[in-house]
Design a protein around this nucleic acid. Structure first.
Lengths: 191, 191
DNA sequence: AATTTTATTGAACAGGTGTACAGTAAAATC
DNA sequence: GATTTTACTGTACACCTGTTCAATAAAATT
């Protein structure tokens, strides 16, 4: 069998316990022992499923990044995301997504946390761009490198946002992104 | 006094021990006890200077990112780095820097390591861009947000490079970056 | 050179980590 | 419903962590 009821029950208990403890302290300060105490699960059982507390959190976070992809496949207007002239603030769902799961992204972007979560987010955005822009190929430009560039550029804005405690509005960031992406076409003459 | 000889000696011993152990295992697998054994320093002494092994590595890494800034202030041709039309592959020193300290960046970009090092690199590049581009201000665009966008975009390329085990040449990446940055001006019509 | 200051040491402590293994209990399978 | 399979438990062990504190030794200061 693929899903033993005992496994489901154990994982659920650990999940709930982690969320509980995350209200009290930061991820890096949480011990396996503490989670197991709260979940009423033997410590050895924890190691049957995970190696560190971080792996338990990783399970959550993968669900969240999956939601990001889903929000793009909605019967929403699914338009090219970063194609210069056609870029529409309404079609950018990323900042909206981050704000929705602000509670988790505060953890993901905290400096003591492993890079792993960053890569999960990066890969998700990169994949969206790779699919979205497969039609728009540029000569002499490595398409994947280009998408890595763009995906991480967006995360650069998100990092700034995070460091300002998510104080900008989603609308403002959408508008800024459109302006930034459209810069070169108007700047190629000046400066 | 600012620099007690004992402190210098202790830190040197710890530094050397860390480098030694880093040849054998990854940063996250190194224990404080192990470093102190090799350095012949009491474990309590370690805690007088650092809280974790990661902080010891941080000291190294700050020297490395400082070298990145220095390479820009050289009597080299110090030209605007990312201004579209004036961008010259020779003036881009970032990929060169990364390759030079490849050994360290392999650690910095490994997924188990804390985000902190990423932020140190990000901030260094961002500061370079902030200074470099203070002349080129765009209306309606938050200058800092713009630099965060560009700085992290470059790191996006570096991440790709890292995940391909630094197999691209520095020259190739410089040329790709120039092409990508110059895209919009030629793309605003097509697509 | 004698005195003062302070970094380092060593020992000890409560707690967490990671692993192993036999015993138990709760699933799945028949 | 009886049997087989396997997830979980409890215990134990060696080791690492983070902290405290009096004793020591190596600096700086006079």
């Amino acid at each position: 069998m693929r899903t033993d009821l005992r496994v489901i029950k154990t994982k659920e208990a650990l999940h709930n316990a982690l969320l509980e403890v995350l209200d009290e302290k930061s991820l890096d300060a949480i011990s396996i022992t503490e989670i197991c105490r709260k979940a009423k699960v033997n410590r050895g059982t924890f190691y049957l499923h995970y190696a560190q507390v971080e792996e338990l959190f990783e399970e959550y976070f993968k669900e969240i990044t999956a939601d990001l992809a889903r929000s793009y496949q909605e019967p929403y207007r699914h338009v090219t995301v970063l194609n210069t002239k056609e870029l529409n603030p309404d079609t950018i769902r990323i900042f909206h997504h981050i704000e929705k799961y602000k509670r988790f992204y505060r953890i993901v972007f905290s400096k003591k946390v492993p890079l792993l979560y960053y890569y999960l987010l990066f890969e998700e955005i990169k994949q969206l761009l790779l699919k979205d822009q497969e039609a728009i190929l540029h000569e002499d430009i490595d398409h994947e490198l280009h998408c890595s560039y763009q995906a991480n550029a967006i995360i650069g804005i998100i990092i700034d946002w995070y460091h300002k405690d998510f104080s900008y509005s989603v609308d403002y960031l959408n508008r800024q992104l459109v302006q930034i992406v459209n810069i070169q076409s108007s700047n190629s003459t000046g400066a």
